[in-house]
Design a protein around this nucleic acid. Structure first.
Lengths: 223, 223
DNA sequence: GAAATAGTGTCTCTTAGACACTATTTC
DNA sequence: GAAATAGTGTCTAAGAGACACTATTTC
């Protein structure tokens, strides 16, 4: 039987914590342990006996004081690209955080995804892979909902989808599709945002077995 | 600087090689190195300086004499589940092979996915994750085409999609959608399959920039 | 009142699926 | 001819997007 005690391993678990700030996605970085001038994703050495998911969740909690609302493994990164740990392998996770509850602990800072400071090449690849994972899961998992607080307006939700998809959506169509999917229910609260008519608040509350008889889709181009 | 020479690592690269045999998916297994009574996915110890993809492709080539037509990382598996190597971590890949060219080397055997012999729990999890990855990528990557030989009939293609989706598709709709996607082109060959009218052979040949303005999809159910 | 935002009704055009048909082979 | 498979034309119903409208707020 192998040793299962808790010792440092030769690989790391990294987490790409993502939130939405002012109509753009942001990533949480901290000062790199090795070189305090450089920034880094939160990461830790894997401990034997601890699952990757647990390690990633722990990193998230350490950075934010609470666990991300959604977490998923991206991939293992083991090419020769540099990483602050100097290990050869890192397992990367993406974690989503609603911005309202996302107050980073000291030493952690949100950076807009379009304007990150220099980070190690391996972690740069993780951030890029994280955005691809989020986009590809967008219609299969409640990504947008996990970036929003527990109650939100339909305009909030639509803006989040527009941000994640990178394109404008049609308001009436968006609401029709949402209604057909039985994913949200109205609360009896309304939010007034300064000017304009107040909007009703909704909560994520997936109700029905989706019927889900769509045809085939050929949404690819590359060999 | 770390050592980058080629030495055995403390983790493995495993590959779930998949093909389609007689209307069901099949996985390639070999006798386990440790216990010749048990079966196992092809795997190898990771070598420093060699990328995961290269290691997985090499495993595939070793088993089949040629590289899989499509390969993608599934995930790193690092829970406590048992693996023939007794390492704590394995990086799993899924590789697709057209059945016509898939003649396994000695010691390797195709098993129908619905009736696998006992394999280690970690590798069992890899096989299950592989099917999920294939299904979720089905409309974003040419999964079905990579399981078919270089030329195929439209009925072949539809049957492959039906197998991967686990449901019947409408013939006319399928062909209309395929035509709109500009993914195949006809050859001047026809195949007679015994009784019935011969079918024209097509080849995968993605042509156009997809226009790709679909609306939002809420195809999920779980929180 | 104007401006801004929320929310809805209706039209049209596209498309998925149903149905039915024609076409070409083996038996 | 019957049976089997390939391939297509047409109708219909559902859905996406455009457009225009109503509703409710702040200024």
């Amino acid at each position: 039987m192998r040793e299962r005690s808790s010792r440092a391993s030769s690989f790391t678990v990294d987490v790409v914590l993502v939130t939405a700030m002012r109509n753009e996605l942001a990533v949480l970085l901290t000062r790199s342990a090795g070189d305090r001038e450089r920034w880094s994703l939160p990461w830790r050495f894997a401990q034997s006996g601890e699952s990757f998911d647990a390690a990633a969740a722990k990193s998230g909690e350490e950075a934010l004081g609470e666990q991300p609302s959604w977490i998923e493994q991206i991939a293992a990164f083991g090419d020769g690209r540099r990483h602050p740990s100097d290990t050869e392998v890192s397992v990367a996770f993406v974690g989503l955080v609603p911005h309202e509850t996302a107050s980073p602990r000291t030493g952690y800072t949100w950076f807009p995804m379009s304007d990150l400071p220099p980070i190690s090449p391996r972690q740069r690849a993780m951030v890029e892979a994280a955005t691809r994972v989020m986009q590809s899961r967008l219609d299969q998992a409640p990504i947008a909902f996990r970036l929003l607080p527990s109650t939100f307006t339909l305009s909030d939700l639509q803006q989040m989808y527009e941000l994640l998809l990178g394109k404008r959506l049609h308001k009436a169509s968006f609401r029709r599709a949402l209604q057909a999917a039985w994913l949200v229910e109205p609360t009896d609260e309304w939010r007034s945002e300064g000017r304009g008519r107040p909007a009703q608040l909704f909560r994520y509350s997936p109700k029905k077995k989706r019927r889900l008889h769509r045809g085939v889709r050929f949404d690819f181009l590359y060999p």
